[in-house]
Design a protein around this nucleic acid. Structure first.
Length: 243
DNA sequence: CCGGTTGTTCAGCG
DNA sequence: GCGCTGAACAACCG
């Protein structure tokens, strides 16, 4: 559920409620339900790992974290954090973090930083990475200020595909290879989207949760790397360590 | 059946 | 104030 492409799918599967009026609201979230009742959803979109329900003067920001989920038109057998009821159907969110953002949503997010956005601008990532030379490659990819929407699976796959060791210092990686890393982060995120829609995502993994390197056959290293300490699968033979 | 995790925030400490 | 650690949250899969 939680990485950027999965949120893009969530937007697609719920777009039908754009322009619809919220008749009533339920759930155990602490946001003010009265604010939403009777209001029309004017847009549904995403930014990074955030799912956004936009109203005229505010937006509901939903982050699914690790275990969050949603259903359309039918409830799960779990207490919903937020349930929006329409004249026809409903939208339910579970185990997620919900916040209200005031004003126009464009004042809260820059879509040039969202890996899944049409507005994605790799030049911004280039500059931010230049400003963080001591960061490790594995950490920079998970940094939502640099790559909004990239999660641990994408991190693993991108590093493997561009032959960069996860513990490389980004300041030591040649500029052309940094550009390639950024390009692949975007490219793989869209592959993730396509494969997830086809239910073939796992079959396409080259490194994540794999035992051996698909290129040299040697066993992959498995390690909690960087300050983010997330599990990383990598090949010490095929992925170059810049230090 | 239990262990692990596609994530983030916050309290507590040195 | 900083960086680091651990806890908390909570659900599904293999």
């Amino acid at each position: 559920m939680p990485e950027g492409p999965s949120i893009v799918i969530a937007v697609e599967l719920t777009k039908q409620f754009t322009g619809k009026k919220v008749i009533s609201v339920s759930g155990n979230s602490k946001i003010d339900f009265d604010r939403t009742t009777g209001k029309k959803i004017i847009d549904i979109r995403s930014w990074g790992k955030h799912y956004l329900l936009c109203f005229k003067d505010f937006s509901i920001k939903i982050h699914f974290l690790l275990f969050g989920s949603y259903t359309v038109n039918e409830k799960k057998d779990k207490p919903e954090k937020l349930g929006l009821h329409f004249a026809k159907g409903g939208l339910y969110f579970y185990a997620c973090a919900i916040k209200i953002l005031e004003g126009n949503i464009t004042e809260h997010f820059n879509w040039k930083e969202d890996i899944m956005s049409e507005e994605w601008d790799s030049k911004i990532a280039v500059k931010k990475i230049k400003d963080l030379p001591k960061e490790l490659a594995c950490d920079i990819l998970l940094n939502q200020d640099v790559f909004a929407g990239v999660g641990n699976i994408i991190k693993n796959e991108v590093l493997y595909r561009v032959h960069i060791h996860p513990e490389s210092k980004v300041g030591k990686i040649p500029a052309a290879r940094i550009r390639n890393l950024i390009k692949e982060a975007r490219h793989y995120s869209f592959q993730f989207l396509d494969w997830k829609k086809d239910f073939t995502l796992k079959k396409q993994w080259l490194a994540y949760s794999q035992k051996n390197c698909k290129r040299c056959e040697l066993p992959l290293s498995k390690k909690y790397t960087g300050k983010t300490k997330r599990k990383t699968y990598f090949c010490t033979n095929c992925q170059i360590l810049y230090k």
